[in-house]
């Protein structure tokens, strides 16, 4: 069965590019445009992977991740951080250690993003 990926990003164009590319790669993709929506969607639909941006309105990605980790299902949900903020070291190490991968958008071709997503989901 096709794997379900939830992409949480407030940048419409980047979100659309990810949806298009992931759909063509055979994933079922759903989206949310901020951490608040993302958290609700994640807890309701329990996707196989959450691709999470950091800087977003209403609720940022790190707050969403913290809340997600407090949930019974969410504490072991697979998450990849996909951001244009450098320095993942700025993220609390204990929180960073709970994610499967972190990618800097502008340094990573879309095809490589998909490869890294596939690697995590299919593991």
């Amino acid at each position: 069965m096709a794997k379900h990926v939830l992409v949480v990003d407030d940048e419409k164009l980047l979100l659309q590019a990810l949806v298009d590319k992931l759909t063509r790669a055979g994933f079922v993709v759903s989206t949310a445009s901020n951490g608040k929506e993302g958290l609700e969607a994640a807890l309701t639909s329990q996707p196989d992977l959450i691709v999470l941006d950091i800087v977003m309105p209403l609720m940022d990605g790190l707050t969403m991740l913290t809340k997600l980790r407090n949930d019974h299902w969410g504490k072991s949900a697979k998450v990849i951080i996909l951001t244009n903020l450098y320095d993942p070291r700025k993220i609390t190490p204990s929180l960073l250690s709970t994610v499967s991968d972190s990618i800097v958008k502008s340094d990573c071709p879309l095809s490589k993003v998909v490869e890294r997503i596939e690697k995590v989901v299919l593991k």
């Binding site: 940048e11 164009l13 980047l14 590019a17 298009d20 590319k21 063509r24 800087v55 244009n84 903020l85 450098y86 958008k105 502008s106 071709p109 879309l110 095809s111």
Partner: peptide, 23 residues
């Protein structure tokens, strides 16, 4: 600059990449 300049650049990179890979 770190965040705001990179976002549109990522967009251009990703969409041109999709065109180039004959998606």
């Amino acid at each position: 600059a770190s965040h705001q300049l990179r976002t549109p650049l990522t967009s251009i990179n990703w969409y041109s990449e999709m065109l180039l890979s004959d998606d």
